[in-house]
Design a protein around this nucleic acid. Structure first.
Lengths: 203, 203
DNA sequence: ATTATATGTTAACACTGTTAATATAACCCT
DNA sequence: AGGGTTATATTAACAGTGTTAACATATAAT
């Protein structure tokens, strides 16, 4: 290995270390309280150093976002492979989604609420490879399985996929952000939502 | 009228003027770009002056929030009074909700995403009068009408109400915030969601 | 007229993300 | 091995944020 590649390798390694530390602090402190300066302080570097590895805060958050998405994608693939009944797979995917959000509110926030104008145009999102995109496609595939198996109404797959995603997101973002409202018990609310949705689009 | 009350009246009037100006700027500039300093500059006062009328930024945003909620409540009452079929009323309420969000994204943001810890405890939210609370209750009443009329499944009214609210919120917050994703056409997505929901909880 | 209060301002504090200028260390090549 | 180049990290600074303390002035009460 040439010395130049070795250098690039070390840089990449350090980038990952920064990323992991950032994610850790992010989860602990929460989305709103995470600041570049505090983070730099935490890892014992000056704030400007981070900018040598990440263009700006958005890119750092996006990198965290991609990491979380990767875990998510792995889980979706596992569900799809292990469940024989596609409707059960969908149901489990939805419930897992919800559980993940409830258990990791801060990760969920970065997962959905970082300014994702990083992908610039909506069109570009689908063209450029990203864990976020692949997660969507994997989730979409599960929905498609259900339609193909005649379990869900035959309608535009993207519409159907997005309706599911949107509803779950609503549950999570509402209960996570709007914490001063006396929401019903999570478990009950989740099951009511998922069952209602599946019922609403069943054949 | 005593001079003291007159003074209080003037103060209240000025507070409203500030509030209206704030809301206007808020809508134009957007939630994220709204700053106390810029706002103060806009209305020709120093930033500290605003603090004589609003405790802090959160309270100012909350006041805007309450104003928006009031319009919302009015609309809900109108729907409930004018529609004879409760299911039609619910359907229209949901679609109006969506339209409002699409047409006023910035107002929607403040409506749902200001730190509402202002209400401190969830329990307090239901006890203290607020336009937000009354909007919820009015919406809940429409849902209850549907259940009473045997149009919707007989289940916990709050659960049912919250499931609807959550789903619509998901649609709005996703399409408003996550603008880099190639969402399906709004109209189609909205109708698919509302129809699916009503179908999912119908008797 | 003098005291008290209400209203508004300036200056400052403690933050934020980000960049320009600068120092130091590491590597490359002759 | 030494001089030049590049990579890495730092300090200082800019422009912005919400918010408060200290201060001035106009109005009302006594």
């Amino acid at each position: 290995m040439g010395i130049k590649e070795k250098r690039a390798h070390y840089k990449e390694e350090f980038r990952r270390e920064i990323l992991n530390a950032a994610r850790e602090l992010f989860i602990k402190e929460g989305c709103e309280k995470f600041s570049m300066r505090k983070f730099a302080d935490k890892i014992g570097y000056s704030p400007t150093t981070i900018y040598l590895y990440f263009k700006n805060k958005d890119e750092l958050l996006l990198a965290i976002c991609e990491e979380v998405s990767e875990e998510f994608l792995t889980n979706l693939r596992h569900i799809r492979a292990s469940q024989s009944n596609p409707l059960d797979a969908l149901r489990q995917a939805l419930l897992d989604f919800i559980d993940f959000g409830f258990e990791n509110p801060n990760e969920y926030k970065v997962f959905f609420f970082t300014r994702l104008n990083v992908y610039s145009a909506p069109k570009e999102f689908m063209e450029k490879k990203s864990m976020r995109r692949d997660s969507y496609l994997e989730f979409r595939a599960i929905v498609e399985d259900c339609v193909e198996a005649g379990k869900l109404r035959r309608m535009d797959i993207d519409i159907l996929t997005q309706v599911f995603a949107i509803s779950i997101h609503g549950l999570l973002s509402m209960t996570i952000y709007n914490i001063s409202f006396p929401w019903a018990e999570r478990q009950v609310l989740s099951v009511a939502l998922v069952d209602g949705l599946l019922r609403g689009y069943r054949t």
